[in-house]
Structure formats: structure tokens, C-alpha cells
Design a binder for these strands. Structure first.
Length: 320
RNA sequence: GGAUGGGUAUGCCUAGCGGCGAGGGCAGCGGACUGUAAAUCCGUCACACAGAAACACCGCAGGUUCGAGUCCUGCCCCAUCCA
């Protein structure tokens, strides 16, 4: 398909706490956009403070999709995300608007942008659990050896200690009879499915870290502990996907008397920093990204907006 | 003033009790990622050289020893306790 025949898609991402949400709203206003959240935690209801969820007021009338659509007890993953995001985008196109995929989960963005094919296979938690138990009992090598026999290609890519990915590779083979290493090789060749602009908002590392620090403190004063306590009373446990979120698993550990509040806060800050770093690593690897460094715009979001629109115009994503 | 414990690499904590070109953890930094991704995992971390050559002040200065982070003496800091 020729570039101009593809449908438009704007992506706005970047490390946590750089200021994506606000910028996304401003951009949406300018270009007639609607926002599709690419965030693995903001999908959950009752998880407002810890996920730094955008407020109704901050949305300023711009429609936001994939926020507050699941209960914390429900499972969420890329496949579900992909399905929901595509559905939301259809609606946006129907309304003649431009979807703005905004959020920090690079993997989710990739799934939509390249329309990655996650070969349908029923998730087999029984198999996963069995494999996990095996690894826990006999060590991760045992699964790795097994993978070596069915899909040696994967062994070259996946480290033996990365049990989750080793399990997925085995599961993939068990369910489809195909090798995930080959499947992935195919998927990697894909090019953007849309006429897209992939903006990554960037800033000075120290500034990001400082904002993380401030944000965590703010969450605490907004009542993060109470929020988690309420979730716990609702029956949320640490093995749920939702409770793997930063801020949630640590506060749960505190509420269960495992660690002090001080330790929990320390870990949230530290792990959020690590997270921001991992996000940057991810975006550096993506080929089509357009880095938007706030330092180059004197932190002025107005200038950034002008710059982004200029690019969108050049790409034919917006007219005028 | 006295007692006791301690000071380990230009970030922090810690192992070490005569053979150490000093072990580990954290932070930091880099990387991977295609159905848990705010997850999971890997690498690096004084500098330089590489394997008969190189040599970071293991608080500082001496001493014992073939050999000292490790033992002895003195000094300087820190912590706690007693006056």
C-alpha cells in the first residue's frame, strides 16, 4: 500500500513522567485527535493514583480510549490491548478524527503500529504454571534444554535465566507446532501499517529522575496507600497483572508487613527510574522514531507543538 | 579525658583474620524484548596491560615478616558508652 493511502496515526510516547499526557491533549486539540492510551496500568479502574492516570479535568474534553475499561482482577496483555486499540481506532476514523496513541508501553505501541500477528492460541495457564513449577524446582536450565530441542533458534536469542520468555517459546511451540523464533523473524520484517509519526518525548535524564521522585511523593500525599488498601480489600493479590504495577506491588508488600513503608517508597522510586531507562532503551531501538527533546525547545510545549505539527503536515497526516 | 567498635577501591553498604593483581550487594550506565512488558532477563562498573608482566594510598605514618587489607606502634577521623 502506498504511504498516502495508509490511514493516519500519531504516536506520542517517552519515558514515564516526561509529560506525555498533557502534550497529547494539547496536540489532540490542535489536530482534531482522539487519544488511545497505550498504558498497561491506566486501563484499570480504581487504580488512579499509582498509575498517574489523567483526570477528567486534564482530558479537557478530548476523548480518551482504553482508560478505566477493566477491573483490576481482569487480565490484560498485548493481545487484548491490540484488539481494543484497533476497535477504538476504527471508531475514531469513522468520526473523521486522527488517533493519537499516547502512553509509555513500547511493546503495545509496536503491536499496533506494525499490526503484529499474535498467532491465536488459547492461553494455557495450566501449562505455564506447570513449566514455572518445573523451573522453580529444578532450575531454569531444565526448560532451556527442552527449548533447545524444539527450537534451537530461540535459545540463541533468549537467555536461559529468562524463564518467562523461555516458557512462552515452549508454549508457542506446543500450541502452534511452529517455532517462535521463526515467527518473530517474520514479524520483524513488517513495516508500519499506518501513515504514522512516532514521536518520542525526551528530556535530560536527571530531570526525569527528579520528576519521578516528585511524582512518587505526590502519589503518597494523594493517598496511594489508601488506594492500594482498598484494592486489597477488593480482593486484589500480587499475582494479578494489575498488581504488578509500580507502586502497587511495593505498597502491597508493605501492607502485608513484609517491608517498611520507607523501603516500599525507596523501591518505587528506584524501580520507576529503572523503568524509565528501559523505556528509553526500547525507543532507541525502534527505527522510525522522531525524537523530541524538550531541552531543544527550552521546555516550551508551545514550540514543541508547532514542531510536531510541521512534521505531521509534511507527512500528510494533517492538511493545511 | 577514658572504654569499646569501626574506617575496604574519586557514589553508597559490606566480605576479608598472613599469599589479594581484594569477593559480594546497591546505585549508576549500556543492552535484550513480538501473549504477564510498570513484567522478565543480560552485560558493565578504578585505570591500564594482558598471562613472567603489570603494580590503586584497603584512614595516615612507621614497624614485624619471604610476603600485610589482614599482626604491632603512633597519629587522624567516625559511632556508641562512661566520666
Amino acid at each position: 500500500m502506498k504511504q498516502e493511502n495508509k490511514r493516519p496515526l500519531v504516536i506520542l510516547t517517552g519515558p514515564t513522567a516526561v509529560g506525555k499526557s498533557a502534550l497529547a491533549v494539547s496536540l489532540a486539540k490542535e489536530i482534531g485527535g482522539e487519544i488511545v492510551s497505550a498504558d498497561s496500568m491506566q486501563v484499570y479502574r480504581h487504580m488512579d493514583i499509582g498509575s498517574a492516570k489523567i483526570t477528567e479535568e486534564e482530558m479537557a474534553g478530548i476523548p480518551h480510549h482504553l482508560i478505566d475499561v477493566l477491573e483490576p482482577t481482569e487480565e490484560f496483555n498485548v493481545v487484548v490491548f491490540q484488539r481494543m486499540a484497533k476497535a477504538a481506532m476504527e471508531g475514531i476514523y469513522d468520526r473523521g478524527h486522527i488517533p493519537i496513541l499516547a502512553g509509555g508501553t513500547g511493546f503495545y505501541i509496536q503491536a499496533v503500529l506494525y499490526d503484529i500477528d499474535f498467532t491465536e492460541n488459547d492461553e494455557d495457564t495450566a501449562l505455564r504454571n506447570a513449566l514455572e513449577a518445573e523451573a522453580a524446582k529444578h532450575g531454569p536450565e531444565i526448560l532451556y534444554e527442552r527449548l533447545k530441542e524444539i527450537d534451537p533458534g530461540s535459545c540463541e536469542i533468549i537467555h536461559a535465566n529468562n524463564v518467562k520468555r523461555v516458557i512462552r517459546a515452549i508454549e508457542f511451540y506446543e500450541k502452534t507446532g511452529k517455532k517462535i523464533s521463526e515467527h518473530n523473524k517474520e514479524q520483524k520484517k513488517r513495516v508500519s501499517f499506518y501513515n504514522s509519526a512516532y514521536f518520542v518525548l525526551q528530556d535530560d535524564r536527571d530531570r526525569i529522575y527528579q520528576k519521578i521522585e516528585e511524582r512518587v511523593e505526590q502519589m503518597l500525599s494523594q493517598g496511594l496507600v489508601d488506594e492500594v488498601r482498598a484494592l486489597r480489600e477488593m480482593g486484589c493479590t500480587r499475582d494479578m497483572v494489575s498488581m504488578q504495577g509500580l507502586g502497587y506491588k511495593e505498597i502491597l508488600a508493605y501492607l502485608e508487613g513484609e517491608i517498611s513503608l520507607e523501603e516500599a517508597v525507596y523501591r518505587i522510586k528506584r524501580d520507576t527510574r529503572h523503568f524509565a531507562k528501559r523505556q528509553l532503551t526500547w525507543f532507541r531501538r525502534e527505527k522510525e522514531v522522531i525524537w523530541v527533546d524538550k531541552r531543544e525547545f527550552d521546555q516550551n510545549s508551545q514550540l514543541i507543538l508547532v514542531y510536531m505539527q510541521e512534521i505531521l503536515r509534511k507527512k500528510g497526516i494533517i492538511l493545511q
